Amino acid sequence: MPDVTPGSAGLAGLNALGPAEAERELLSCCASPAFARGAAALLPCDDPARLVASAGDLVRELGWDDVREALAAHPRIGARAAGTGREASWSRAEQSGTAGADRRVLAELAAGNALYEQRFGHVYLVCATGLSAEEMLDRLMARLRADEETERAVVREELAKITELRVAKLLARDEESA
């Protein structure tokens, strides 16, 4: 068994961890304990692509209370993630399209976030990787017109995409340290 320190992750690292330690690592990808338990139960795994896809499937199958628990860990779009941990770092990178955005767009995002939270009762979530602030705002405005059931389906899909990207980043840490 390789010498693995929690936090070193990578596929080999995850495979070497006990269930509780693996769950802690996986919580950085999706802050739902139900997700982390389900993903840790897939270990050991020898196929990173299968683990990434399975992680997305697990998120899509979460109950709404579990989704809301995961949403609570996400900062508002346009707001800087607090903290110095892995999740905060990933969130800042994912939302990098808001860096240097026009003040008007950022103000509209802030106002839209408030309207969204008032309407749906949780943070607006979008897989922001590769999107400009304007694109995030356009999606927010469109989603404000959705009914609750439709929006819940969109939120689950966005959370699944974010989780897949983060699991892939966690697994890529093997290559970074090699």
Rank of each mutant, 00 (worst) to 15 (best):
P2A: 14
A39W: 02
R152C: 11
D46I: 03
L62A: 05
S132Q: 07
A146C: 14
L58T: 03
A172G: 14
L26M: 12
A40Y: 04
T5S: 14
A93T: 09
R143F: 10
A142I: 12
A93N: 10
D147W: 04
C45W: 01
A128T: 06
S28R: 15
K161N: 12
A133W: 00
L170N: 00
M1D: 04
A22D: 01
E87M: 07
E135H: 04
L106S: 09
E135Q: 13
L62H: 04
A73I: 09
E148T: 14
E108H: 13
L51I: 06
R139E: 12
T129V: 08
V167R: 08
T163H: 12
A81M: 11
C29T: 08
T5E: 15
V154T: 14
L106Y: 10
R173K: 14
L71A: 13
Q95H: 04
L17A: 02
Q118L: 15
V105N: 08
L62Q: 06
T84R: 09
N113Q: 07
E61Y: 05
R86A: 07
R86W: 04
H122P: 11
H74T: 02
R92V: 01
R156D: 05
K161H: 12
D3Q: 07
K161P: 01
A79H: 06
A79C: 08
R166I: 03
A39L: 04
L14W: 01
P19D: 11
S28I: 05
L170F: 05
A99R: 12
R92W: 01
D102V: 07
A72N: 13
G7F: 08
A93F: 10
R60K: 13
S89D: 11
A16F: 07
A53G: 13
A111M: 11
S96R: 12
L144P: 05
P6I: 00
S132F: 05
